[in-house]
Design a protein around this nucleic acid. Structure first.
Length: 372
DNA sequence: AACTCGGGGCT
DNA sequence: AGCCCAGAGTT
């Protein structure tokens, strides 16, 4: 007995033809669509993981200009890769990219592998990215499912389960595979994502201009705003964080975060989470002593910054401090350094720290003007 | 299956 | 104040 198709109600060609025709007419002119270099396409796909096109585009341009080949990236220092990645988020992507480049040199002679399974063996390349590179860069008939494709398929085929569940995921991948044509698989995959990004929006999609308006089952049932099924999210905690810009002899102290974990490999000002019952100043004394082993004097506030991460948020208080006593040592970090404020730009900092740096340099500039 | 891991733009 | 984004890796 032959295996039954996952969804036989809609014929593949009823979706392929209008979708590809629409894509040929409406596809955005994106930087990574102007190249056929698998290396460049790989870079773009890593940058686009959980990241909007508009956010990734300028990073992509800078990155491929600075590191034009696999070999150039493999030879680069990780710190310079992180500096180029600064502000883009999910910094493990930069570490995996660097490591994968070195593996491509040693295992594949510097050429990106073409098969899905070989691509999957590289760090930072999962199911989606393996499908994207093999189909877009190498023209192979490999499906992909991302957030956009999930929304499109859940609506067109009226899939009502929670897309986070494994059984629903499996169904979506099966649908994507069945729809995929042998000709132009890369364009078809991009067309599905483009539709999710431009027409099949999360809320109030403009179905009347959608190329799939005649086949979409969600539209037929008026359920396009209820699919895909929403998952409830837990409330996220808010932490109070305090950091010190510690000055000594015209330099400030920064430390490098451990390479694994949150914001790994980036630099920051010493500090940490305030505990309940503790004042901001007490917390700062304690955290600085625990992290870099010195005693400080706490001065004026520089800035207070609210910042949201994926699964928690912080209110960050930054204080101007001066060194008091003790020898700086690397207790809860990978490295420490005294740097001139003007050299802070050379180091990769998290976004919340960048806001502090800006406030710091602005105040410094104002001080100079005032003294003249 | 549930967590961890950023940052920004839109509603 | 959530929601979502061309997801991957770990537990």
């Amino acid at each position: 007995m032959a295996k039954e198709p996952v969804q036989s109600k809609l014929s593949p060609s009823a979706i392929r033809r209008p979708l590809l025709r629409w894509f040929d007419r409406e596809a955005r002119d994106l930087p990574w669509r102007r190249t056929r270099d698998p290396y460049a396409i790989w870079i773009s796909e890593i940058m686009l993981q959980q990241t909007r096109v508009q956010a990734a585009a300028p990073y992509y341009e800078r990155f491929v200009r600075r590191f034009p080949t696999v070999v150039a990236l493999a030879r680069a220092r990780l710190d310079s890769v992180l500096k180029l990645w600064e502000g883009l988020g999910y910094y493990c992507r930069a570490r995996n990219l660097h490591k994968a480049a070195q593996e491509i040199v040693t295992r594949f002679g510097g050429q990106l592998p073409e098969t899905r399974s070989e691509l999957l063996s590289l760090p930072g390349i999962g199911a989606y990215t393996a499908g994207a590179i093999s189909s877009i860069a190498f023209g192979q008939r490999e499906p992909l499912v991302d957030g956009n494709v999930t929304r499109v398929l859940c609506r067109v085929f009226r899939v009502r389960g929670n897309p986070k569940e494994a059984v629903v995921q499996k169904k979506l991948w099966s649908l994507a595979e069945e729809l995929l044509p042998a000709a132009r698989p890369g364009d078809f995959n991009q067309a599905l994502m483009e539709l999710g990004s431009e027409i099949c929006l999360p809320k109030n999609p403009p179905c009347e201009v959608c190329p799939l308006r005649r086949t979409c089952l969600a539209k037929r049932h008026g359920e396009q705003n209820r699919l895909p099924a929403r998952r409830r999210k837990k409330p996220i905690p808010c932490h109070t964080v305090v950091v010190g810009v510690i000055e000594r002899n015209g330099r400030v102290l920064i430390d490098k975060r451990p390479s694994d974990g949150l914001l790994g490999g980036l630099w920051e000002f010493p500090g940490g989470k305030k505990q309940s019952g503790e004042s901001l100043e007490e917390a700062l004394h304690r955290e600085v002593l625990e992290e870099v082993g010195i005693r400080i004097r706490v001065g004026d506030s520089i800035a207070t910054v609210d910042h949201a991460y994926s699964h928690f948020r912080i209110r960050l208080h930054a204080f101007r401090c001066t060194y008091a006593s003790g020898t700086p040592q690397c207790l809860g970090c990978d490295a420490i350094k005294w740097v001139r404020p003007g050299d802070l730009r050379r180091y990769a900092f998290p976004a919340a720290n960048k806001k502090i740096i800006r406030a710091l340099l602005d105040a410094r500039q104002a001080g100079r003007r005032g003294s003249q």
